[in-house]
């Protein structure tokens, strides 16, 4: 007798019909939007006070999240990175909350489906070339031709293959890590539900943070490669 697996998404009538990765991504997005709006109103209410609040409140917490993300981006990409804080921070928060939602009972993480991870990595792929063309104009295409013009027929396919491999590896890595982790936890839970899955769940927590950081780090490397003036 198979009974239906409980998910939080099945509580909402209009989310019930959607596939699980879509409904969970929607729930996580709504949570993130609520956090962003609450943090914004808290910050706006405080006005232009220079002295920060002494204790950890919701406003300071939201400020801390934004500050740490912009610090990571500016540390890695230099002063030019300020333009990319919005995009990389959004991707990072979305992926992090989705990864962590796998540890909450009743949530299937949206990142353990290839569609979600490739949506994220293809966004990075398209935006890389958008920023490259924006920075260099039509000269951006020269980067694909290699050092000499007579090497172009050899270099163009090589560069093309290298560029296609980037979003594929980004998406596959995130999908594989989160799926594997979720599967191992489920199997251990099926064997011995008490205490035994704990170390695996701790490992899952670690994997969730590391994979988010790797995704951000690699997309930052691709962006800075596209806008750099030497090659």
């Amino acid at each position: 007798m198979e009974h239906e697996v409980f998910t939080w998404a099945s509580l909402f009538p209009f989310l019930k019909k959607l596939p699980p990765h879509v409904s969970n991504a929607l729930i996580i997005s709504v949570i993130l939007v609520v956090i962003a709006i609450l943090g914004y109103t808290k910050l706006k209410k405080r006005g232009d006070d220079i002295v920060p609040e002494g204790k950890l409140t919701f406003g300071t917490f939201a400020e801390m999240i934004v500050e740490s993300f912009s610090n990571i981006v500016v540390d890695t990409m230099g002063p030019k990175g300020k333009e990319f804080v919005l995009l990389i921070g959004t991707l990072g928060l979305f992926i992090l909350f989705n990864n962590l939602s796998g540890l909450v009972p009743g949530f299937l993480p949206a990142t353990d489906n290839v569609n979600t991870t490739f949506a994220c990595s293809l966004t990075v792929f398209v935006m890389t070339h958008y920023y490259g063309v924006k920075e260099h104009g039509i000269k951006y295409l020269k980067q694909f031709m290699g050092p000499f013009w007579w090497l172009a027929p050899l270099m163009v396919p090589i560069e093309l293959i290298g560029h296609i491999a980037r979003p594929l590896s980004l998406g596959l890595r995130l999908f594989g890590n989160i799926t594997g982790d979720h599967l191992v936890t489920a199997i251990f839970f099926g064997l011995v539900p008490l205490f035994v899955p704990l170390p695996v769940m701790f490992l899952g927590l670690f994997v969730a943070f590391v994979q988010t950081f790797v995704f951000m780090l690699l997309s930052m490397a691709y962006f800075s490669g596209a806008i750099s003036h030497e090659h």
Binding site: T76, A165, S169, V214, L218, A221
Partner: peptide, 24 residues
């Protein structure tokens, strides 16, 4: 830590490059 994480991307990307070449 940062450079270790970026080196770890090398293996997957190399394998996928050959696979994409063969697929094309």
């Amino acid at each position: 830590v940062r450079s270790l994480l970026s080196y770890s991307s090398l293996g997957l990307e190399m394998g996928l490059s050959v696979a994409i070449g063969i697929a094309i």
